[in-house]
Write a protein that binds this DNA or RNA. Structure first.
Lengths: 205, 205
DNA sequence: GTGGTTCCTGACCGTATGGTCAAATTCAGA
DNA sequence: TCTGAATTTGACCATACGGTCAGGAACCAC
């Protein structure tokens, strides 16, 4: 029913499904899949628990819907890397966009981190079908840039890993970063310039 | 009782507490605190559930014991950075040690990652009392090295963050890395040389 | 061996949690 | 306004889980 909307969803459908997904993002990202409860999500969404089960087939369905919905958003910045652009600035722009996402969507970042940490039990297929092809395509692009002498020679796969790691660290390890930076906002402006320097020095031929 | 061992623990005590902690590390690191069950831990340890509760006061007690025990191990590599050593090689050696830990102790890495991701509910104090002082001490040391012209000028705090992020990424996001590297071992040797290059280029004055 | 301590277990308990359902309420089109 | 479909809910249910307890088994001086 709610899972196979053959017809157009009503206004109430749209509004409530959105409310539920918003609430679920909040709860799942803070407590992980197992730590989140339907009651919490219902409470956060301002709906009753049975009502939530009216819109989704179950806890897992909500979680999967969230992951599916987010996957695209998450990959967009990488996808936006332009083969015809100037290699170094394309990559640095990607770093910047990725850091910006940690700033603007920390919950999404933690949701993914949680899922991957647990071994991606509900996302394995999506990784293979969604992320992998894009990863292969973009690492190949970077390799071409390197072969053309536009970038210093590095392993493109590790390059991408390190971009992800350094940018997402601020969102995923927020609790730690906050303690170590004396409670400042966890992504100070200095992070931007640091990462810019880090990757600029690495990649400049 | 088990929690306040005023007297020396018997041989059986030592053996079984170790078994339990080993099992708990396995289970907690794979499923997170909330996702782990005492039954799983008992099963993994080859002990009955009540027997486990004979040695520990409860699930939380086991988790806290694990975190306490691991904190030291986790900080050792950073602590080993020698103020009297050659700055660049000290830092690169630290990167190398940290990557080695992701290789050798991925479960420990994921245990910490899980805890921090959830907002460090059971480790906040330890971060402040254990990690923070060491972090401050070592970032100050790096700053002195920079001021002495031995390293390129970078923000030491972000430098440490990026070292942690890039090295732990391979353990924490193992499931993702494995997919993207076509199922190879998730920390290939190429990671070592990549990270060496990354930080060498950044830090060489 | 014997007695006391340590270690271990089966059976059980209370609660939390994911999920169901019949009935009530609201909504939208005629 | 009326009517059927969509939406909402209170009351329940079954299970999983953390934890308890009384008593039994194993161990260890003596």
């Amino acid at each position: 029913m709610a899972n196979t909307p053959a017809k157009k969803p009503s206004r109430i459908q749209q509004r409530n499904r959105k409310r539920i997904l918003d609430a679920a993002l909040e709860v799942f990202s803070r407590h992980g899949y197992r730590g989140a409860t339907l009651d919490q999500i219902a409470d956060e969404a301002g709906l009753s628990k049975p009502n939530i089960l009216y819109y989704f087939d179950g806890k897992e369905d909500i979680h999967v819907s969230l992951l599916n919905q987010l996957m695209q958003t998450w990959l967009d910045p990488l996808d936006a890397m332009d083969p015809d652009g100037e290699p170094l600035s394309e990559l640095l722009a990607y770093v910047h966009r990725k850091l910006e996402m940690s700033r603007d969507f920390p919950r999404e970042s933690r949701l993914f981190a949680n899922e991957i940490l647990q071994g991606a039990p509900r996302m394995g297929p999506h990784l293979k079908s969604g992320l992998k092809p894009l990863f292969d395509k973009k690492t190949a692009l970077i390799q071409r840039w390197i072969d053309a002498g536009k970038l210093a020679p590095v392993d493109p796969r590790h390059l991408v890993f390190s971009i992800w790691a350094t940018t997402q660290h601020y969102a995923d390890f927020d609790a730690q970063v906050r303690v170590l930076l004396n409670g400042e906002k966890s992504i100070p402006d200095s992070a931007d310039s640091y990462l810019d320097t880090l990757f600029r020095k690495l990649l400049t031929p």
